[in-house]
Amino acid sequence: MAPDQNVMPSDGGGASTALSIDSDLRFKRSRNVQEQAIGLLLFLCAAVSTLVTVGVVAVLLTETVRFFSQVSVFEFLTGTQWTPAFQEKHFGVLPLLAGSFMVAAGSALIALPIGLLTAIFLSEYATARLQAILKPLLEILAGIPTVVYGYFALTFITPLMRTFFPETDVFNAASASIVVGIMIIPTVSSLSEDALRAVPQVLREGAYGLGATKLEVSTRVVVPAALSGIIASFILAISRAIGETMAVTIAAGNLPNMTLNPLESIQTMTAYIVSVSLGDTPQGTIVYQTLFAVGMTLFVITLVMNILSQWVLARFREEYE
C-alpha cells in the first residue's frame, strides 16, 4: 500500500503525517460540538446556584448599607430595644440575638447529648437489625415539616411546661428550644455516626486487645478519634437551630424581649423577619430595611458557623494517616 500524499484530512485537524487516516479513526467534528454543548449546559446549571447566591448577597448588602446610613452600627449591635415599627424607634438587635441565642443554646442542650449518644449507640452498640429500624425512624424525624413541629410545641409541649411551671407564657422560648432540639437530633446523630464509623476498625481492635471493655473502647478511643467530626456536627446543628424559622415563629412568640428567661415570650431574628415580611411594610422604609440588616446578621452568623465546621472537619481528615 503506497502512502497517498493527497489524502489529508479535509479539516486540517493538525494532522501533519502524510498517512491516510482510516475513516473509523478520523477526528469527528460533530462529536466535538456535541461534547462542548453538553459541557456548556452543565456549566450553566452550576452557574445558576452561584449567581443566585451572589445576587442574594448583593441585595442583602445594598439594603443593609442603606439601613446603616440611617442607623449607626453601634446602636444596632449594642441597643437593647428593638422597636422599628413604633413611634419611638429603637434599633437594638440584641433582643433578637438573645432570642436566637436562647433557642440555639436550649436546643443544643437537648440535641447534642441525645444526638451523640444515639450516634454512639448506632455505630458501636446496635445490632444490624436495630440499626435497620432506628435509622429510618431518625430520617422520619428529619423529614417532619417544621410547621408541624411548631404546632407540636404549642399544643403539646407548652401545656406540659405549664403544668410544671404555671408562670410560663403561652408563647415561650423553652417550648421552642425543646422542639428545635428534637428537630436537630438527626443532624447530630447522623453526622456524628458517620464520624464514628470512619474510625478504623483496627483502632477498636487495638483497644480491645489491651483489655478494654466496649464502653472504654467507645468513650476512650472511638469518640476522641472522631471528635473533630462530632464537633463539626454540633456546629452544623446549632447553625440549623439559629436559622430555624417556622417552629420558633409559632411557639416562641413575637415579642422582642431582652431576656434570658426561657419561660418568657421572645422573638428570634428569623421570627422577626417572618413577621415583617408577612405585614404590609412599604418598600424603602426603614422598617423594610431592618429585614435586610437582621437577615445579614443571620447570614453572617450561619456562614461563620458553617465555615467553622468545614475547618474542623478538614483538620480531622489528617488524623489517622
Binding site: 483496627v202 483502632l203 486487645g209 489491651l210 488524623e319
Partner: peptide, 17 residues
C-alpha cells in the same frame, strides 16, 4: 480479662490518635 493477660500486636501499626 483474657485480653488483659494475652496481648495482641496487629498487622498494620494501629496506634491511637
Amino acid at each position: 480479662e483474657v485480653r488483659r493477660r494475652i496481648g495482641m500486636v496487629f498487622q498494620k501499626p494501629n496506634p491511637f490518635p
